[in-house]
Design a protein around this nucleic acid. Structure first.
Lengths: 122, 122
DNA sequence: ACAAGTACCCACATTTTTGTAAGTAATGGA
DNA sequence: TCCATTACTTACAAAAATGTGGGTACTTGT
């Protein structure tokens, strides 16, 4: 129930948000598009998120059938996360978000180096 | 600074979220893909959001250059919102989210009518 | 004997987000 | 004269999300 999005009464976009609307969900799913990864890898790939947040978001994604969790009975522990088929159906969206973000970043960085010496760190 | 997403240090997907990561932003942008709309229309189209939320989200979208705001000096007031060119560059993402959400809804509703008579209202 | 390593969990504090209710301005219509 | 209308704003309250710091288990390597 990420932020009480309501897929039933809301529009189609809201339905999508009910699945990937969480703070770090799109980022995690995106990383998992490259393949099964263990927890520590996801941590390294998502440095702006705390360990706790990653755990929580993965739990919700699991509950929604987007990722599956594979636990190995080893010490030290090893847990791997993988997109389900359902999760993989999100791939086109994430790919577009990645592309758009890449272009956005480039644009912003260009703007920054151009007109603006002062601190517009936002 | 919606939810302190950091487009600089984060991955490309996070950069995108820094623009449309807000609670109602994707929904609003999606509605605006159909064309310029006044505030009241957006309200009707987004019944799960409060008036206040719509205002706040629109303000952030405006600050990020995604929408433009047109105020008419009339009484009662009339204000229209419209995607900027930059905002329109988000169209492919929103369209995919809409499609995916539509399929998701259909799937969920089907599951519901099938196996499950009891109240799984989630 | 002891530290390192992994993937967590827990309690608690703080921050952020969201909702609620009320108020505003100026005009046209009853 | 008074009300309805529209797109807000503001203050306050409640709820949700997020961060912090600590702890755990069990084995391997030193």
């Amino acid at each position: 129930m990420a932020r009480n999005y309501n897929w039933k009464t809301g529009c189609d976009v809201e339905a999508t948000l009910s699945v990937i609307g969480g703070r770090w969900k799109p980022v995690l799913v995106c990383h998992l598009l490259e393949g099964r990864k263990r927890f520590g890898e996801l941590r390294r790939l998502t440095p702006n998120a705390t360990e706790r947040m990653i755990t929580l978001q993965l739990r919700e994604l699991e509950a929604d059938g987007v990722v599956s969790r594979h636990v190995y009975a080893e010490v030290p522990p090893r847990v791997e996360y993988e997109l389900t088929e359902f999760g993989r159906s999100l791939e086109p969206i994430l790919m577009l978000m990645q592309e758009w973000g890449s272009a956005f970043k480039a644009r912003r960085l260009a703007e920054e180096s151009k007109g603006d010496q002062s601190a517009r760190t936002a």
